[in-house]
Nucleic acid binder design. Structure first.
Lengths: 144, 144
DNA sequence: CTTCATTAGATTGTATACAATCTAATTGTA
DNA sequence: TACAATTAGATTGTATACAATCTAATGAAG
């Protein structure tokens, strides 16, 4: 029986390491767009569906207001989004893409393919990993 | 052809989300030991092999001095490690476990199993994911 | 022996994460 | 209608990450 405290035995570590590695490889692709990786994720969510509340975006990305409030303010300062209180319920803010935020989508469209090439992962591996992770996510959520 | 900018189409996002979710689930297990998750990883590395330089630990965890210096100072403040300049080459610091740091290992030994149960991942899934990720790591490193 | 390049850590500045708390707005209910 | 509970965001405080820069120590070449 091997040492259960070996780094390689932990499921956690590969996720931690790979996640950071991927983020790092996004950087040069996102820099021309003026986005960080979490900011890019927020933009993805908004490009899918404009005009969402902070809470809705947060649920999609599993991020709370402590993370999103400053991040959204930065995107607002960059002129990509607007944060407007919902008149119907002033507790909500509506996050809306600006013209600039919308058109940034065109440039972003090249990123997924460019990243795949940067990672050097084959299409089969890509699909295998995606499916494996989806299974894992479902299982993990099941214990919530 | 589906939208390549869909969040679910990104390989990146599951890693990002799962990695943070796992870290979150470690928290209640590590809190009694007075460790954060990255601090726990450093301790794992030191329990494997005591007396390493910051650089060696960093290479194992893919972390640089910008992250490790403050983290190691916290572990030192907790009395778990010592940071001593190597007399043979004063550019290196030797990171050494204290008595307390060594004995913490006994309490840590229960954590991997406890986490597995917390995640609710079957042994087969656990192995499948581990192998899939190892393959991916190799591929990714291949492009370095 | 000196000087220049290299190396290991430390430091600085920016950007997340996230628990905990706070505040204002809304809702449920006696 | 009052008023407690709930809810959405904002704020605060702590702990990473990491690029970029700095510093001190070592090594290499002339």
């Amino acid at each position: 029986m091997s040492n259960p405290l070996l780094l390689e035995e932990q499921l956690c570590f590969p996720f931690y390491a790979i996640s950071r590695e991927i983020t790092k490889r996004y950087r040069p692709l996102l820099e021309p767009l003026g986005l960080t990786y979490p900011q890019y994720l927020v933009m993805l969510v908004l490009w899918e569906k404009d005009q969402q509340s902070l809470k809705a975006v947060g649920e999609r990305l599993h991020l709370d207001s402590g993370t999103l409030t400053p991040l959204l303010k930065k995107l607002e300062a960059s002129g990509l989004i607007e944060r407007i209180k919902n008149p119907a319920d002033e507790r909500h803010i509506q996050i809306t893409l600006t013209e600039k935020g919308n058109s940034l989508r065109n440039e972003a469209e090249q990123i997924p393919l460019a990243l795949k090439e940067l990672l050097g992962v084959s299409e089969e591996d890509f699909e295998l990993v995606k499916q494996t992770l989806n299974r894992l996510t479902i299982k993990m959520n099941g214990t919530d």
